Amino acid sequence: MSSRSIHEKLVALTRQMTEAAEAMDFETATALRNQIAAIRGEGPLKPGDPDTVTVSQPPPGAMGLGTQVPVRQPPKGWVKPKKPDLMTNISKPRGKRS
């Protein structure tokens, strides 16, 4: 295909996508958007792309390296508390019974 025919096809698909979106036919609009992306060489959009919406929470344990979930950082100046020495009596008396 020549670049002119590709451009004409993209313009036609864009117009059809806009009409489908205005008619609230979002499934057709999404299919047309994916066709446009494939013609442009971008490939179909994946769930991690910024233009798509994900509704679910990440699975448990999926936080950290290799995921898109940011790791929370402690506030500036925060110091991790010392662990108690388990060899000492760390329990407090709760009062006396009469």
Rank of each mutant, 00 (worst) to 15 (best):
P60H: 10
R94K: 11
Q16H: 07
P74A: 06
V69Q: 06
M17V: 01
A38K: 10
K46D: 02
Q35S: 01
T52V: 15
V79N: 13
K46W: 05
G41F: 05
D85G: 14
V79T: 14
E22P: 02
P81R: 08
R40D: 00
P75I: 10
P84L: 11
T18I: 13
N34P: 05
P74R: 11
P47Q: 14
R15Y: 10
A21G: 15
G48L: 04
L65Q: 03
T54A: 10
L13T: 01
I36V: 12
E8V: 00
E19P: 04
M24W: 00
A31G: 03
A20H: 01
G77P: 05
S2L: 03
R94F: 09
S5N: 06
K46C: 06
K76T: 15
L86H: 06
S5V: 11
P59N: 07
I39N: 02
A31M: 04
S56K: 13
K9G: 02
A20G: 01
D85I: 12
D85N: 15
R72C: 11
T28N: 05
Q57D: 11
V79P: 05
R33Q: 00
S91A: 15
P60L: 13
S56P: 01
Q73L: 13
A37E: 11
K80P: 00
V71A: 01
A23M: 03
P47W: 12
V71M: 04
M87E: 13
A21H: 15
M87A: 14
Q16I: 06
A29P: 04
S5Q: 11
L45A: 08
L32Y: 03
E22C: 02
Q73A: 14
P75T: 09
E42G: 05
H7V: 12
M1Y: 09
V11M: 12
T88F: 01
I6G: 11
D25G: 01
V11Q: 09
G66K: 05
D25T: 02
L13H: 01
K96E: 14
K83Y: 00
S2I: 03
E27Q: 05
G43M: 00
T28G: 03
I6A: 13
P84G: 08
G41V: 07
L10E: 04
E22N: 06
L32S: 03
R4L: 13
P50C: 13
A31E: 07
P93K: 08
I36E: 03
P44C: 15
A23D: 04
T67M: 06
G95M: 08
S56A: 12
D25W: 01
Q35C: 00
P93S: 04
